[in-house]
Design a protein around this nucleic acid. Sequence first.
DNA 1: TTGTAGGCGTTATCAA
DNA 2: TTGATAACGCCTACAA
Lengths: 348, 348
Amino acid sequence: MTMARTTIDDVAARAGVSIKTVSRVLNDEPGVRLETRDRVRLAMTALNYHPSLPARSLAGRRSNLLGLIYDDPSPTYVFNVQHGAMARCRESKHRLFVFSCKDLGDQVVPEVLAMAEQTHVDGLVLTPPLSANRELIAALDQRSIPFVRVAPDAFDHPSPRVDMDDSAATREMTQHLIGLGHRSIAFIAGHPEHHSSQVRLQAFRDCMAEYGLSAHLVEQGFNTVPSGAVATRRLIGRAEPPTAILASNSDMAAGVILVVHELDLDVPGRLSVASFDDAGISSIFWPPVTIIEQSGYNMAHAATDLLIRMVRGETVPGTTLLDHRLVVRRSTGPVSAFERDGRRLGAA
Amino acid sequence: MTMARTTIDDVAARAGVSIKTVSRVLNDEPGVRLETRDRVRLAMTALNYHPSLPARSLAGRRSNLLGLIYDDPSPTYVFNVQHGAMARCRESKHRLFVFSCKDLGDQVVPEVLAMAEQTHVDGLVLTPPLSANRELIAALDQRSIPFVRVAPDAFDHPSPRVDMDDSAATREMTQHLIGLGHRSIAFIAGHPEHHSSQVRLQAFRDCMAEYGLSAHLVEQGFNTVPSGAVATRRLIGRAEPPTAILASNSDMAAGVILVVHELDLDVPGRLSVASFDDAGISSIFWPPVTIIEQSGYNMAHAATDLLIRMVRGETVPGTTLLDHRLVVRRSTGPVSAFERDGRRLGAA
DNA sequence: TTGTAGGCGTTATCAA
DNA sequence: TTGATAACGCCTACAA
């Protein structure tokens, strides 16, 4: 009843060669006469042949299957990352196995290992926060499963990582705000256990200091919407509230925006709002928020590229820093005359 | 150098049985003495054995691999659906291969077929709009690849589908608005080529008629944020603008909210806003929007469950209707005295 | 430049 | 209730 699958034998028969030759063509191996190669290719398309991934995995040293694992709560981030990785896979006939660690709790490590062993993936792309999961990384090391880390909290490890220049980006954004005349700039710091949080915070402080400004308006957040909202309420409630708030990630920025609406604050008239857009989510905020855009898509694409090259045995750079981009939107504007004259939001 | 994979032979040796017996235990086949079964299980855990998916795919009639394909632009929807399907897979040791058709253009059908053949998936879960792709469905039929459709635009096909009762849901929401005193209710219709759009529109009209109300305030949208915004501007610009707007999907609702902020409209004082939350996205709107919640997670879970049962050879229902839920939030409220007295938004 | 034989780790078939 | 052996579709090693 079921149609028999088109196999390498069918192709070989039609092309009048042995299966080994077909295999060579399939894997772009040298040592096949051009004419033969063409004939085989023709037979493949004519028969609509698609080599069996399982068969290749089983027989070969490589499976051409890569794994992408994530445990991020942000749909947009996951979406972007997934597509970046998929796009790179498509470029070289690789396949991507997407694996979510959501709600896996302390089973993350065994589950990932089980997945990797069962599926025979050639390697893994780890996205944050998994890219900074020491336990997981140790386990992968132990089984010598190749992997590339995306935006990991920096801890030394020989595996390649793809990241953005958090320090330069923070500096750029801070300068943007200072350039608009802001002097009283607040920073909502990211989750204290994330390394990038610390890098951003430090860069913010350094930049402010460089311009002779005080960086005392810092609130601790936890990369969540509520924590951003809480921090904002605290900041607004101060005797001398800020004229600008820079949130260390986009979920916290969502929290800022929430409070902005709650208190009906004029943005950017009285308060400028800026953030990093880790999640690619900021486009749906109102007003549109000025961001440092870091493309999850690009990062994942780059990481997947590295992984593929690693698996091929190439040597790849330990750190790949991707460009970021300051996207100015309507949430940031010049500090108002009202503010400049020394009066404050809280006094309004 | 590379550690040899733990195989069925290792387990068999350790348990003192043949590999066939291990295989039987693995597949929950009958005809193994309880004591033997336990011994094998013990050996499996002791050796941390994970059967090779490729090997099983190659040898067996089934791969225990299911495919989820999507081409939806909404990250949240994809995220939810993905997790629903993954969760169901986890329940029965299945694996999910996620495949995006984004940007594939007219290559969708060949790419999906290639994927299915290469990966040896046992079947596919089709999410909208692919669940209504006639070409694709015909191709899958032809290769007799089992599939389940999620929320397809209704067209007759023997394959199982999982859906919600759009008609009842629309009715419920319309009644909610009418109950709040609204008489002038606008409807932003969804993409004309989506069947559910038509069902919702029809249900809206029927419900309005039933209460003796006119359903002339209908704008055509296209399930996108901009189209929702455009439609809203048109509605607000009318001589007699509505006191409530019901958007046929959540992206268009985002467009409504955008315009609400743009024009600084009082919600729900002057305008109530409601929508369907196909994308599970409405929680981040401000103000929070009253929605009909249809869970992509549940739909995918149910669809995957059906698929698994199909593959097992069980007979499954042709249509599975899932519950929906009216979630009332602050974007809808009683029509104001101002409005009730016959004056209108546009005259304000 | 091309082909032959063996094996990857599992399930299917048939036998004991 | 259990086991031996042949596939599954491909790649690796080696040979021609």
